[in-house]
Simulated assay, not measured.
Amino acid sequence: MSSASSMVDWELAGRTARRLISAGPATTREEAAGVVRDLHEAAAVAVAHVEKLTGLSPVPGGPVPEVAVVDRPGWVDANTHGMAALLDPLVEALAAKQDSRPGAIATAIGSRVTGAQAGGILAFLSSRVLGQYEIFGTGGRLLLVAPNIVATERKLGVDPADFRLWVCLHEATHQLQFTAVPWLKGHLEGEMAKFIEATDLTTDVLRERLQDVLRSLTDAVRGGEGESEGLMALVRDPEQRAVLDRVTAVMSLVEGHAEYVMDGVGPDVVPTVTTLRKRFAQRRKGRGPLDRVLRRLLGLEQKMKQYAEGRVFVGGVIDLVGMEGFNRVWEGPENLPRIDELTAPERWVERVHGRPAIPA
């Protein structure tokens, strides 16, 4: 999985994560089999509801995504492969651009050190991620992390059938976004290539910026609150920031769209949807010191803010021009929202529809 030029030793990352993964909730073999069966059924049911609400449908003749119900180690394996497939070619491109051997960055940080760090992060996330749609490293696959879904529904005290369908609605929306809008994956890959093209960091600069991030983590350990970009604080080049703004806007769009759908299907589909949303919102607030440190490191506080803005954007645009008008966002990269439009959906309406925003 890892090459000599890799910035991260992904094999070590996987081994480290597997060693650190916490045990999932206790279930009997029959209960576990029932959960797997229920999740496959819920994922199949969710697709029709998402297509009906959004008005989108997969491109005819396109690949049919696989649905995989996995445990925590299975999620780690999928993500080490996916991250390697995404990041290693970018590191190779960066090394070639700097006219140096691929070990230039790895010499500063060490692929094994970063591998161990990545493993710790993956272990942390492996007990929290409920599902995801893989687009890098595979032809498209929907992952549902069974032990985390069971643990969360028990902790929240919610109806299991409703919660499982609700989670599947979210992930099926991501699946539909990339199967109905095939250019979206290539667009994101192109933005990442532009990010590398704008990169020109020396070892000393990288070390200095890492120290800034570590100081932020120290504040988090001491109980300091507030938002942080985490590892994104390493990026200060204006061109890179511009790329990150565009990527942030896209990711906020796709996440906000999924949030809108999972609530928008209404109680006819998920009877306890209001209760689910209320209780689930509380789950996203990490309160312990470990949560604070890792959320600060990963920039999750900032991510939650961006995803909330994505939900505001999607709901705001639909209020102004309806679902059909909103779906113009998928017509091409030029129609994707700009970062300043996330909190001002009327600006997007005026730019894309060419008229003042008037409520539908």
Rank of each mutant, 00 (worst) to 15 (best):
F178H: 04
I196M: 13
S57D: 14
E341W: 04
T218H: 09
M232A: 11
R283W: 05
R355A: 15
L53Q: 06
A118F: 00
N148Q: 01
Y260W: 11
K194T: 01
G137K: 08
N148D: 08
T275Q: 15
A180G: 05
N148S: 09
A44Q: 07
I149M: 07
H174M: 09
M323S: 10
G157Y: 12
V91Q: 00
E92D: 14
V145L: 05
T16Q: 07
V261I: 12
P345K: 00
A42G: 13
K97Q: 15
A116G: 13
A42W: 10
V70M: 10
M83H: 08
G120F: 07
W75H: 04
H40M: 14
A249E: 04
A85V: 03
G322T: 09
E331C: 10
R241I: 13
L206R: 03
G288T: 14
E189V: 10
A68R: 15
G110H: 02
G264P: 02
A344Q: 02
G315L: 08
N335S: 13
E334M: 10
I339R: 01
T202S: 15
Q306H: 13
I105R: 09
V329I: 12
I21G: 06
R141V: 10
L336W: 08
F163E: 03
M192K: 02
D200A: 15
V35M: 06
V293A: 02
L217I: 07
Q132T: 07
V270W: 00
T275N: 11
L234E: 05
A26R: 11
G62L: 09
F163W: 05
S6T: 07
L169R: 01
A308P: 10
G82A: 03
G264D: 01
G354Y: 11
G34A: 08
R287F: 14
T173R: 02
L210W: 09
D9L: 05
D71L: 04
P60V: 12
I21A: 12
M7S: 04
G266W: 06
D319R: 11
L39S: 00
L53I: 08
V67I: 07
L176W: 02
H81W: 06
V213W: 01
M192T: 01
P182R: 04
V150T: 00
G131E: 03
F163Q: 02
W10K: 04
E92G: 08
D38T: 10
S126K: 03
V273M: 06
E31W: 07
E134T: 01
L290D: 03
P58T: 06
A258H: 03
L144H: 03
S216Q: 13
K52W: 11
F136K: 09
T202P: 14
V67P: 05
L143R: 01
G55C: 09
G74Q: 04
K97R: 14
T343M: 12
A43S: 02
G310W: 07
D212M: 13
V145R: 05
R287W: 14
L342S: 06
I105V: 15
G115V: 00
G190M: 06
Q240E: 03
R215L: 15
A281T: 13
G230M: 04
L143T: 02
L142G: 00
S126V: 04
V205D: 14
R154A: 11
M304R: 15
D162G: 12
K194D: 08
E134N: 05
N148V: 08
T16C: 11
R283T: 06
V213L: 13
C168T: 11
G131Y: 04
L290R: 08
L53D: 02
E239T: 07
